[in-house]
Write a protein that binds this DNA or RNA. Sequence first.
DNA 1: AAATAAATTTAGACAAACCTAAAACTTTTT
DNA 2: AAAAAGTTTTAGGTTTGTCTAAATTTATTT
Lengths: 230, 230
Amino acid sequence: MKFSTSEENYIKSIYHLQQQGGVVSTNNLASELQTKAASVTDMLKKLNAKNLLHYERYQGFTLSDEGIKVALGIVRKHRLWEYFLVHKLEFGWDEVHAIAEELEHITSPLLVEKLDTYLSHPKFDPHGDPIPDVNGKMELRQQVNLIDLALNQEAEVSAVGSQSTELLELLKHKNIGIGTLLTVVRKFTFDNSLEVKVKNFPPFSISQQLAQTLFLKPTYGSTTVGSISK
Amino acid sequence: MKFSTSEENYIKSIYHLQQQGGVVSTNNLASELQTKAASVTDMLKKLNAKNLLHYERYQGFTLSDEGIKVALGIVRKHRLWEYFLVHKLEFGWDEVHAIAEELEHITSPLLVEKLDTYLSHPKFDPHGDPIPDVNGKMELRQQVNLIDLALNQEAEVSAVGSQSTELLELLKHKNIGIGTLLTVVRKFTFDNSLEVKVKNFPPFSISQQLAQTLFLKPTYGSTTVGSISK
DNA sequence: AAATAAATTTAGACAAACCTAAAACTTTTT
DNA sequence: AAAAAGTTTTAGGTTTGTCTAAATTTATTT
């Protein structure tokens, strides 16, 4: 079955939202898609008629198995194109999201498979997100949220939880990118903010909100800067 | 100014038609786009309002300078993507047209320039058509139509005049592709058909229609099979 | 358990891009 | 030069995806 660009965008957004919070609500999806609740309801009816959703009036909704399959196909295309843009065309990892949003709607399945082969079947995209294979299977990202990182445990930034320009702007300002090595030197319970250290820079503060969008891979053989352990 | 996919398709088709015949007619464009004359008139009004056309009711139309600029931008994208699909992803030259029709509508100008650089600024696409540069300039294809090829003059097939599946099917059947070397051994005035020879194959016949869609580059130092010249 | 607030859906409109059928204009034929 | 044929445009309607405003349902207060 084929879908319009608009249908695909709804499916993809529902997928992302239900990854976080389980059942998705109308307002929730409307704000994610920058549209109005009434428009969302219209589209829900259509997707429901195509058996892509479990949907009951006023009760929220989730993707059906079929819906998830479709979503994974779109996610696969999005992440493969991002990989292509960064590793072949030499875009920065923070410039590619909008372009991949367009490329992900190109329909040819053969194109996707040839692209995958050309890129040597990458497992993760430039933001650290896993790329589903043809059957929708993908690796878990073995990453830790910055909020959960142990004190003085060195780790490498490997993914960001959103591609909003606001977030990317803030990361640029703080000089943080994919690959940055950092350690948490203090945690403040008052506002859950963190004091963070990057080599060769003075320590600086990261808010709870920001910390929640950053994912890292611990560097075993940590630098244990001021810790008690030998 | 930005254009919808539909507007871009109209602009591109008008461009191709006026390359052949000068002023374009409504029915002409309707059949090219597989749509109805009334739909064409609707769109003409819109494009005219945006100053992309010279248009007078009932009198036909051509692109304005601005319209040509837009058309060349689309043609540039189409041909660059075709080059990418054939030379990087290893598609056959006869499989890429439909996919490039989708890719040509991706909007990012930076993407086009990075792609062009990645491909090392190719001058011709896999069908032998020239690729316009950023300013719309392109080389003429120094090619001869098969109809005009001199007797016994060896030449290499370098372009086909259309990408219709019907044509590609026929070429496949006759074992002709980009790069095929051939000579015309006889011309029949009755139906303007040609008797053609490809090395290691028995001679075969090509209709006037087919000959008109094939373009070739003469091989200087010809093989002059049965000619009088030493 | 009412009253109020918030979320969701319905009803009715609108723009883009298409359609059919009829009217208007051009070209060709007789 | 009138009639016929062909082409183009207009008029009015459809579908998709959006919107605003009003009605309905669910959740939260008091």
